[in-house]
């Protein structure tokens, strides 16, 4: 089974988390991402959208496939730019977004603590890949 793999190079060591890919909800977007991985960019934190990290991506040129409100762990594409958005806590959404992957609930507590660092310490290198893992 293929999963999205995020590796964040924090000062005290790499943090790796995997996310389930939603082929049923965003097949074209995932296909576009598969063509550009692996890629890296400094991770940043949103300033208005509450508990959200952001990552600029290569140009993907895809249409919206779902108009969803995010839950904690969801990862989506903001098309203008574009950039990935990752929510690590429950928020009051300010709009819909194109969700294509989700971090598993059992990984959320550590994910929340790690990604929350991006607010006070932005700029850690995040590498995005799609890899084959055991189900």
């Amino acid at each position: 089974m293929k999963k999205l793999k995020l590796t964040v190079a924090f000062d005290d060591g790499d943090y790796v988390v995997y996310a389930k890919l939603h082929y049923d909800r965003a097949p074209n977007l995932i296909a576009a991402i598969e063509k550009v991985v692996p890629f890296s960019n400094p991770v940043r934190h949103a300033r208005i959208c509450e508990s959200e990290w952001m990552l600029s991506t290569p140009y993907l040129g895809v249409e919206d496939e779902n108009f969803s409100y995010p839950d904690p762990g969801d990862i989506s594409l903001h098309r203008a730019g574009p950039h990935f958005c990752g929510w690590y806590e429950r928020i009051s959404p300010i709009g819909t977004t194109d969700i294509f992957a989700s971090v598993a609930s059992e990984d959320l507590e550590e994910y929340r603590k790690k990604m929350g660092r991006a607010w006070e310490h932005p700029g850690a290198k995040m590498t995005v890949d799609i890899v084959e893992v055991d189900a």
Partner: peptide, 22 residues
């Protein structure tokens, strides 16, 4: 236009990283 969008997005990211938001 898409190429400009992509290029501006990357430069904007680096300006963002210069700014001590917290």
């Amino acid at each position: 236009l898409q190429a400009l969008e992509h290029y501006y997005n990357q430069v904007r990211t680096w300006i963002d990283l210069e700014f001590p938001w917290h």
